[in-house]
Computed example of a mutant assay.
Amino acid sequence: MLAPVRLRGQRQDMTGNTEILCIGSVLWDVIGRPASVMRQGSDVPGRITRLPGGVAMNIAMATARFGLRPALLTAIGRDAEGDELIRACADLGMDVSHVYRSEDLPTDRYMAVEGANGLIAAIADAHSLEAAGDKILRPLVNGTLGTDVSPYQGLIALDGNLTRQLLENISVSPEFGMADLRVAPASPGKAERLMPFLNHHRAMLYVNLEEAGLLCQNTFSDAAIASETLIKRGARRVVVTDGGRSAAEADETGVITGTPPEVLVTRVTGAGDTFMAAHIAAETRGADRQEALSQALTAAARYVSGDNAL
């Protein structure tokens, strides 16, 4: 059995300041939420908020709430919005010392509308992150966090907002060859970018049922079948979620399942990132597979209900 890397009590970077690297999108989330059900063309009163977001940022924020110390590898512009975002990240407990600050690329943004019936529409503008490319990974090659001969050996949360080519390069890069690599697509539209990690010897995939189907070029009726199929296709370890229905975690030894608590859904953006962060944190505390899955499902349910208590 290829067991997950246990990092409880360890500090894995060269400076001893972090327990998990979060690589990917860090941007401003602009979210509109009414209290009513919405459909195409709806024009209703509600609230519009702007908060630090992005998959990597959401995972970093959640892991910080769970007691880990996250560092960000991302691209943030040197514009006013970027300066404000850097300050907000630092105030939330992120290590921002390794962030690539671009002189000519604007800070990225994500915009979504969520009705009482769930996500209505969303647009992710992560073009600056894509344009920055492998510049965001320099600390992993220049000796700050690791090199190709002495690679980083800790936890890495990687999101699919990076370009397909960069993700392919990461999947075979020696700089990632010793890490406990946890990978999630940014959205179903980017799920197929994770194909190179289906056969990665140290990667664990976190996907929802739709994303699992896209990776397998199939459709699935439940998470257990989807997770088992991903393992058969070469994945080392996977978690498949399905909203309020049962989730599954699988490796070569078999499949386990768990069902989230029933809650009133008040928000959905960031729920999958919270699940992933809670699962990682549970394993660093020594939880077994079933305990980690259960704790992650409970944390995600609390998040979508609007309860941030951990």
Rank of each mutant, 00 (worst) to 15 (best):
R138D: 02
V141E: 03
N142Q: 02
N142G: 01
L145A: 05
T147W: 04
T147E: 03
D148K: 03
V149S: 10
V149D: 12
P151W: 07
P151D: 00
Y152I: 11
Q153E: 12
G154L: 07
L155W: 04
L155K: 08
L155P: 00
N161L: 12
N161M: 09
T163W: 06
Q165S: 10
L166P: 00
L166G: 03
L166N: 01
E168R: 13
E168D: 07
I170E: 02
I170W: 06
I170H: 03
V172K: 08
S173Q: 01
P174R: 03
P174F: 02
E175F: 07
F176T: 01
M178N: 12
M178Q: 14
R182Q: 14
R182T: 08
V183P: 11
A184D: 15
A184N: 15
A184K: 13
P185L: 11
S187Y: 03
P188N: 02
E192I: 13
E192M: 12
R193A: 00
R193C: 01
L194D: 07
L194R: 13
P196Y: 04
P196F: 06
F197G: 00
L198N: 05
L198H: 06
L198C: 11
H200Y: 03
H201V: 10
R202W: 09
A203K: 06
M204L: 08
Y206G: 07
V207R: 08
L209Y: 07
E210T: 14
E210W: 03
E210P: 12
E211T: 09
A212Q: 04
L215F: 14
C216L: 11
C216A: 15
C216Q: 09
C216R: 08
Q217R: 15
F220C: 06
F220M: 11
S221P: 08
I225W: 00
I225H: 04
I225T: 14
A226N: 06
A226R: 07
S227P: 08
E228T: 07
T229Y: 07
L230R: 07
I231K: 10
K232E: 15
K232S: 15
K232T: 13
G234K: 09
G234R: 03
V238A: 05
V238G: 12
D242S: 10
S246H: 02
A247E: 01
A248H: 11
A250C: 12
D251V: 04
V255F: 12
V255K: 10
I256W: 04
I256K: 03
G258C: 02
T259G: 01
P260I: 02
P260W: 10
P261L: 02
P261S: 00
E262D: 09
E262P: 06
E262G: 04
V263T: 03
L264V: 09
L264H: 04
V265S: 06
V265N: 00
R267H: 06
R267T: 05
R267V: 01
T269G: 02
A271C: 12
A277K: 13
A277H: 04
H279Q: 14
H279F: 11
H279W: 08
A281Y: 09
A281W: 04
E283K: 10
